[in-house]
Amino acid sequence: MTQAVETQFAARVIELHKHYYLGEIVVHALRGVNLDFPKGDFVAIMGSSGSGKSTLLNLLGALDRPTGGQYILGGFDVSKMTDNDLSDIRNRLIGFIFQSYNLIPQYTVLENIEVPLHYRDSRQPIDSEDRDRCEHLAKLVGLDGRFDHKPFQLSGGQQQRVAIARALVNNPEIILADEPTGNLDSKTEEEIMQILLDLNAEGRTIIMVTHEDNVAKLAKRQIHMKDGQVAGDGLFRG
């Protein structure tokens, strides 16, 4: 990994292209996307299915490499990294929140929050300090008293809280939320969004994919994707 360059951007996307090869057919999922995410930003990415928003999210999440262009995350050029380096980048710089929570069913709440720590660079065993941090985060997202519950003993909203705590445990550069409230009722949706807003208020950079307008409008910025390109980018608060 090359040394990070200090910037005011948490992440930058420059002329990003992504092609998929489905047999003979080439699918141009992204056709030159340019985006800047300043530190402390809260962005909602919107767009119909097939617009390329999922592809963009995968690239932003360092789960995939672009066909062309650059992706600078926390000062690192992620576009041409090896699989192992991508793993490390995801571990250090990205916090994932998924629509379907994606907790590990056989682990308790605390153990689920610990998972990213298992894969940190040093591969250091989890110590009491780490455990304190996990407990602190669990309390922060409102899971006090449920540390030893298994995911199936929790409601959807509670599971998503675990996922948020897990996303925070490595103190990432950006938080990527893929339809974080997609499976939740409106009341729980509000609670979860409030947590995200609070985190953003603390200065965390959040990139969120959603297709619900009422959720999107809570973000500082909305980006509309269409046909693999950014169709609109701006501040539409309220």
Partner: peptide, 16 residues
């Protein structure tokens, strides 16, 4: 498979 995907997303290398 899903658990594997989650672990990979959270930073697990192939080796892990």
């Amino acid at each position: 498979t899903r658990e594997i995907g989650v672990r990979r997303a959270l930073g697990a290398r192939q080796r892990d």
